[in-house]
């Protein structure tokens, strides 16, 4: 098999086309590193607030380590802001600190308070992300896929209203939460479409508020999966590959994740990938499951190589970190990570 570039490779992986030289090492979530920011002298807090800085930062993992994608944004606040939440970006902190933006004021008290504004493409930081995606397409889009992510409806609900209230209401008044999730799903379909229109190669849906560390499989099935199903079926009509990512313990819900019918699923290190492969069969596209902190940051080269090997032997279709790559990761470790996939992932 002759060499192919990352964009071609990953496009084939998404269509389960086995005509590839090797599997890929990429992600649908944040993967910027401090090493990459050094190249431009950026502080971590700056890259959430300026399209050019965001785009430059997002390309560095490809440029420095051949990590095979360029993904923005880096925080989980884009949708919440559009819907009325206020963020803290910690711009008053030291330049070298890595503090992720947080929601400082929730958008709604009750599920019925939700208002979805008009012209979503022009709201808050959406234009900034769109601009960044354009810059990235221009810079690296011929060789690597350019991507973004949205939150899953339940995780988004958790960003918008008091989480304990949401969790309890999910049990006591599931109908009210169901309506909220339904409205949020409409909003996410709109946002996903806006991203598609500017030109992305895949979209990740992060439903990280709903692993079984937090919710029961039953609740996942009754309350969350139906909305994911609708979200994916609409977005897939746009010919856009969709990855459903859930971190934490996903072993009891991998079937439900796959049945919700995304193009691929992504899981973290708590997932027993070999068993997941057995449960889902050969047709499923599974990404995972390298521990982004325990292995990539804390581990040595051997730990990284072993983890990559194990994931590949377990049957992943590409190697993904289990969540955002932790920015403090060293250059050596990132290089070893990508190299291990190139080596063990040969077809």
């Amino acid at each position: 098999m002759s060499a192919m570039n990352s964009k071609e490779r990953i496009s084939k992986i998404f269509s389960k086309n086995d005509d590839i030289d090797r599997i890929a090492c990429f992600s649908g979530m944040g993967n910027v590193t401090m090493e990459g920011l050094k190249k431009y002298g950026y502080a971590f807090y700056e890259i959430h607030l300026d399209a050019e800085k965001m785009a430059n930062a997002a390309c560095t993992s490809y440029e420095l380590y051949n990590f095979e994608c360029a993904v923005v944004p880096f925080d989980l606040g884009i949708e919440a802001e559009v819907l009325g939440a206020e963020m803290n970006f910690y711009t008053h902190k030291e330049r070298e600190s890595i503090i992720y933006p947080t929601v400082k004021k929730k958008a709604i008290q009750e599920p019925e308070d939700l208002k979805i504004p008009e012209n979503v493409a022009e709201r808050n930081r959406v234009p900034l992300v769109l601009k960044a995606l354009e810059i990235m397409q221009e810079r690296v889009g011929d060789f690597v896929p350019v991507a973004t992510y949205i939150l899953g409806p339940y995780t988004l609900a958790g960003q918008l209203m008091d989480l304990e209230k949401l969790l309890k209401m999910s049990f006591k008044n599931p109908d009210r939460i169901n309506d909220l999730l339904s409205n949020l799903t409409n909003f996410l379909i709109e946002l996903g479409t806006i991203y598609r229109d500017v030109g992305i190669d895949y979209l990740t849906v992060r439903e990280m508020g709903a692993p079984t560390d937090v919710l029961s499989p039953r609740m996942f099935k009754n309350l969350i999966q139906p909305h994911l199903k609708r979200l994916f079926s609409k977005l897939k009509k746009l010919k856009l590959p969709i990855v459903l990512h859930i971190c934490g313990n996903t072993n009891p819900i991998v079937e439900l994740m796959w049945e919700s019918s995304p193009t691929a699923i992504s899981v973290d290190q708590k997932n027993e990938v070999d068993k997941t492969r057995e449960k889902l069969g050969d047709d499923a596209i599974i990404f995972g499951n390298i521990d982004p902190y325990g292995v990539l940051v804390k581990g040595g080269i051997d730990d990284i190589r072993n983890a990559v090997k194990k994931a590949i032997e377990g049957g992943v279709d590409s190697v993904w970190p289990g969540c955002d790559i932790w920015p403090a990761v060293s250059k050596e470790n990132m290089l070893a990570f990508v190299k291990a996939v190139e080596e063990f992932g040969k077809r």
């Binding site: 309890k168 049990f171 937090v214 919710l215 029961s216």
Partner: peptide, 11 residues
Amino acid sequence: KGEYFVPEVLM
């Protein structure tokens, strides 16, 4: 034991 989850505990 993983029989109850966070919402259950809160309730």
